[in-house]
Simulated scan of single mutants.
Amino acid sequence: MEGEDKGSYEAPPTCTLLDVLLKNRRPTGAVNQVWPRLYLSNTCNPKSNQTNNGLTHLILHVMNLPGYYGDTGVAYLGVEADDSKDFDISQFFSETAEFIHTALTQNGVVLVHCARGISRSAALVLAFLMIKRGLSLMEAVETVRKHRNILPNVGFLNQLRKLDSQLHRRTEGH
């Protein structure tokens, strides 16, 4: 738009994000594909048919024993993150985005898991969509919400808002 300062982009306010995240909620299953070959889940047993779906890569909300996943042939990344508004999950944004991107580039199937499949795992998937697929935070939220109810905690939303602003400034050349 003429006269608009492109450097003034602001991520959507937290209250707007919460409105989008809380409206039109409907039942979703334990495992949902939210992007081609990328799944969000609150269940994590790579040996079960429910979560397998050709699974090649797994992101867990805690570091689990290598012995449990070692015989599955699944590559995994452990992310020790508390589902707390005070926890800095942004420290994992780049690493998990790269892990997902690499897996998908190799035609892998990725499952991102946390206890309820709505906060920690959702925040990591949203960050991936923003960092590696160029979506804004709102576009990422709307994309995932088409397939699964998510609700990252307020602290995670604020960290995603910060990432959104940083990425937008970078694409604008600032």
Rank of each mutant, 00 (worst) to 15 (best):
V34W: 02
L65G: 00
S121V: 07
V79N: 00
V79F: 01
L18K: 08
F92H: 13
N32I: 15
I59Y: 08
L160A: 15
N64F: 14
M1Q: 13
G70Y: 12
F156M: 06
G7D: 07
P13A: 10
T72S: 06
T56Q: 11
R133K: 15
A140W: 03
L40E: 02
N158H: 05
Y69W: 12
L126Y: 01
R169Q: 10
S136C: 13
D19Y: 06
D19E: 14
G117Q: 02
E142S: 11
N53C: 01
S121H: 08
R133E: 14
G67K: 10
R120A: 06
H147P: 00
A97R: 11
E80M: 13
G155E: 04
Y69S: 02
E142L: 15
N153T: 03
N158Y: 05
I150E: 02
N49E: 13
P13V: 12
L77K: 14
G54H: 04
D82Y: 15
G173S: 01
P36C: 08
R170A: 12
G117D: 00
E4R: 14
L55P: 01
N153G: 04
C15W: 03
E95P: 00
V144K: 02
D71H: 10
Q33I: 13
T28N: 06
S8I: 08
A75P: 02
Y9F: 07
V125E: 13
A11S: 09
N49M: 09
H101A: 13
V144F: 06
N53L: 11
T14M: 07
K6Y: 05
D19L: 03
M138Q: 07
E98L: 15
E80W: 10
N107M: 01
D5E: 15
K6W: 11
K6M: 09
A30H: 05
L38F: 06
V154A: 10
R120W: 05
E2C: 05
F87C: 12
G3N: 08
S84L: 11
G7F: 06
L151C: 09
T171V: 15
Y69L: 12
L18W: 00
L111K: 03
S8L: 15
L21P: 05
T102S: 08
K162V: 08
T96R: 00
N32W: 11
L151Q: 04
F99D: 01
A75D: 11
G70I: 02
S119C: 06
I100L: 09
E95Y: 00
M63N: 11
F93E: 14
T14V: 11
Q33A: 09
F87A: 14
E80H: 10
L65R: 11
H61I: 07
P46K: 01
V20C: 13
L22K: 12
L157W: 00
P27K: 13
A122L: 15
T56N: 04
A140F: 04
D88T: 00
T105V: 03
K162S: 00
L22W: 10
L21I: 09
M130S: 03
Y76V: 11
L17Y: 04
N42R: 03
K85E: 06
L126M: 05
L38M: 07
